[in-house]
Amino acid sequence: MIYVDGVTKEFKKVVKDSGLKGSVKSLFNRKYNIVKAVNDISFHVPKGEILGFIGANGAGKSTTIKMLTGILTPTEGRIEINGQIPFKNRKKYVKEIGVVFGQRTQLWWDLPLVETFSVLKQVYQVEDKAFNERMAFLNEVLELNDFIKSPVRTLSLGQRMRADLAASMIHNPKVLFLDEPTIGLDVAVKNNIRKAITEINEQEKTTIILTTHDLNDIESLCKRIVMIDKGKLVYDGSLTEMKTQFGKYREVNMSLFSNEDFDKLNFVSEFKVNDEDIKINRSKEKITVTFNSEKISISNMLSYILKNVQVKDISVNDVNIEEIICRMYGKEVSD
């Protein structure tokens, strides 16, 4: 369905002096910095899968989505989706895809929402019957009826996002690209949107690629994730696998009577482990120690702490996936 093979995108950043003079000068004599926003990534998505695309800010997620949707041309590499090359015949290609860029809207700002849908109906040449069924379905899952007659500029962010998601699905696309579809939304609307995504995926076998910073989106929607960092692919596999791979880490959360006490502890020399097996995170109320439970047993860890400092409260937890992801980013940085 979706094949991405060795794709790289370079941006030329013009280095220019400030002011009008600088602008004019840079017109004739341009100096560039080349930034590799996406660096040689490859992956494959079969039909009907929901793929979670994650990475830190600036990792290259949006750039990748823009290449997949035919907006940007890759500097190198090959993309094939539905048997088509996105940027080659853009107009034909985009008929079969739906796109949401969470920070933007494709709705007509000054028109009532319902007008946007009728514009899209004509642009994508959707038959009346299919359109009505689709609208009924979207109305039901995304609860659009309350504001479908209001001008888009009067909608709240959550309403607008639901409407945008509906707009991206009106023509029953084979592939959906969702770049941060839950950005800035409250929990209830997020659930709403997740439900819509799941249902569209189950009913229509729509292939979906989704980027997000909310790992709950990932947990509730995606079996598989692709992670990129600084433009490079660092992980491609199932979410469960990633959890087991990093599942050996545990964290101890404690609050102390006196935080200075904590300085008395030195885990690395006590347990004779490497720096990367231990991570300490201190705040005023709480200290978190993340450690590799294969190297340090939980009981040893606890007894060492309890023996040396006065503890008000202490607990041991699994590491959550946010922590895992932070670690993976960290690993890449130190390479």
Partner: peptide, 13 residues
């Protein structure tokens, strides 16, 4: 502001 991409994802010139 980059919103031209919202035109480019539609099957129109």
């Amino acid at each position: 502001d980059g919103s031209i991409i919202m035109r480019m994802i539609k099957p129109v010139n």
